[in-house]
Design a protein around this nucleic acid. Structure first.
Lengths: 223, 223
DNA sequence: TTCGCAGATTATGTATACAAGACTGTTGAC
DNA sequence: GTCAACAGTCTTGTATACATAATCTGCGAA
């Protein structure tokens, strides 16, 4: 990882967006960022270019870059696509997982259970990511894994909001168990279906999401 | 469309890659591109940054940008994901298409039939794109439509190669008819399955693709 | 008081200059 | 004869300077 300046900057800014340091709709001033990171405008611009290509910021010509605000509807659409892709990864993992994949899946699942038992939401949040990445890897489709990982990253902040919902961690763990079983049994259809359901924002979970979104907005706006 | 220089440049270079003017593995020299387009290196770099974020070029630190060469395996993986996403769009279109969508779908399908009848492969190729975009639109999921359109664009050159295969146009048209019917009937499952099959590179079609790939490479390399 | 216009100001887009790492070609040693 | 090391060149990465479009402010008129 011979990280160039702009490469690091890209990650920094992306991280800032994901963690909410730069809130949706906020304008990203080039000079301001440049002085903050102690570099010139050039690498900042290049970082913003990349982020705008990914869709994290919107670069309006001659009017600067702003953090994209997806809005509830679009976030819902993103979860829909995520559910489908993840289901696909699960189905492929069921067919193609190796002994190594099996070990990785079980290990990550166990760690999730430990975190869940200790009621450490942050740690569960992290282990959950590892679990899902293990599924992507087990699909043995590099491209699919990349797409899943990218979407996963973009949805990270909202996923985190969802974990706040009462009992969600416990339910989530239960779903994981079923998913693991389906994959290791080689049951493609079940793996696909369970992962889809696991990701999809259905029923009450949509209103949970929306209410958490607006709560976040309020707390973000107030000083 | 207040197109900035770098915005135009991005499209130009992207187009050059898609049309094969810049062949896979080729190094994209900044000064060379700059003199060619009559601009300085700065906007060229910004364009290349965006293309590298999309995944069309690979920007190795300090070593310049090269056109990504996906290779048969990765192209196959991309078609797999495309098939899934397109199937999803079809299923959603079956549920949510409006009267306008219905008209657009039928119109684009008719134009495909005309082009196919006149055996004008290029024109069929174009109308086919319109047809698929009509499906994306009918899904009424903006995000899904964007994802589909992006992947569609990236796979454009290979799709074109596939049309060269004997009888492919005729078969394709037949599949379109079934897809349209399923969507307009509101039959989600059928629409999904038929679109998946329509896109997926199965059986003989994979070897067709690979052989066309190597043929293209040969013709591209010889003067 | 509010709307509109014009100048000033600020920020973005592009060009150029400079620094530093990578590639190439040659020379010398084994 | 081959391999390695060094120097030179070339290309990329970053900084700075300048041009231009957009925004802001202040003044005037309705």
């Amino acid at each position: 990882m011979t990280s160039n300046t702009f490469h690091k900057l890209r990650d920094e800014i992306e991280n800032g967006i994901i963690t909410g340091e730069f809130s949706p709709g906020e304008r990203l001033d080039e000079v301001q960022l440049a002085t903050r990171f102690g570099v010139s405008r050039t690498p900042i611009r290049e970082a913003l270019m990349q982020l705008s290509a990914i869709g994290l910021v919107e670069a309006r010509p001659r009017r600067g870059a702003v953090v994209v605000d997806p809005g509830p509807n679009r976030i819902y659409e993103m979860f829909e696509v995520m559910a489908e892709l993840e289901g696909m990864a699960g189905a492929m993992a069921a067919r193609r997982h190796t002994e190594q994949d099996r070990a990785a899946l079980l290990a990550s699942h166990e760690r999730c259970e430990l975190s869940a038992a200790s009621e450490d939401t942050d740690s569960y949040y992290y282990d959950n990511e590892v679990f899902h990445h293990a599924i992507y890897a087990a699909s043995h489709s590099t491209f699919l894994a990349e797409q899943c990982a990218a979407l996963h990253r973009r949805l990270r902040p909202y996923r985190r909001l969802q974990l706040r919902v009462r009992n969600r961690v416990k339910v989530s763990i239960g779903e994981h168990a079923g998913i693991i079983q389906a994959i290791l049994d080689g049951d493609e259809a079940a793996a696909r279906q369970r992962l889809r359901d696991h990701i999809a924002v259905q029923g009450d979970r949509f209103s949970d999401l929306v209410s958490n979104l607006s709560r976040r907005d309020k707390t973000a706006r107030s000083p």
